[in-house]
Design a protein around this nucleic acid. Structure first.
Ligand code: ZN
Ligand code: ZN
Ligand code: ZN
Ligand code: ZN
Lengths: 132, 132
DNA sequence: ATGCACCTTGTAGCAACTACAAGGTCAAGC
DNA sequence: GCTTGACCTTGTAGTTGCTACAAGGTGCAT
């Protein structure tokens, strides 16, 4: 398949696929006589893996690790578990941070009863250090 | 005050302060005879405002809007409310996304009972399209 | 006078793409 | 046969919000 088909099949822009190839995240593709990239089902599987990992919030560096690990079938699962657990912890931290933000923003919205910016509590609270 | 003091007072790196000035987010400072930036309390207040808004997740573009609005004391509060509400909605969307991620990662961790990567369910589930 | 902390400008790098520009290839339609 | 249009190629530059130098100037204590 050509890059456009692969792009459509995985919901990835062609430019991103080329970028992954440059970065060594995806193996290089064969070329047709006219120098078009020619992808196999293995490439489809690899790109699906990469995109899924990225959607799950893994960094490119982590994706590299996951790829390397997945090529060592005899290695213990622990190695993968560690990465997933790390990512889970990170996601939980982000959720906590965002929930604190949400609360602050909600409070700001409820706080202002003024109708001119001159007396706006929101503007006021932006100029003060956070207490949270 | 000099840039280092302002930096310490606001928990901002000096380089970031210069960057804000270049970007027009902060007004330029006076200069001493030796060309050092010389900040006033107004600058301190402005930088505090900016940093707080950034901590609350507002983009630089939104901070510019907030600053512009805060300088029009006669404008209605609605304009500010709109920005805060927008940001609140965005934060809520991110929380929902991250909670879905957290659930998927948790499920992946629980799913794998193998001890060799060859049979790892986690690796397997990365290669499949998400169902969620 | 020498060290050291601080300041100045300018430039380049980070992550993970995204967006061109300038040109080559290929099938369809007239 | 020729044009149109969709697709492909490479290479380079832009995005966001900083951060990290490098190379030099300043100010104060020892
Ligand atoms: Zn091995
Ligand atoms: Zn208000
Ligand atoms: Zn006005
Ligand atoms: Zn496993």
């Amino acid at each position: 398949m050509r890059i456009g088909e692969l792009a459509k099949a995985t919901g990835t822009k062609a430019e991103t696929i080329r970028y992954y190839e440059r970065e060594g995240i995806l193996p290089t593709a064969d070329r047709t006589d006219s120098n078009y990239r020619d992808y196999s089902d293995n490439h489809l599987a690899a790109l699906t893996f990469v995109r899924r990992a990225r959607q799950l919030g893994f960094s490119m560096a982590q994706v590299r690790e996951l790829l390397a690990l997945s090529n060592h079938e005899d290695n213990p699962c622990q190695d993968i578990d560690r990465l997933v657990q790390l990512q889970l912890t990170e996601v939980e931290r982000k959720i906590a941070d965002l929930m604190a933000l949400r609360d602050e923003l909600g409070q700001m919205l409820r706080s202002c009863q003024a109708d001119k910016i001159g007396e706006c509590q929101i503007i006021g609270s932006l100029g003060r250090q956070s207490v949270m």
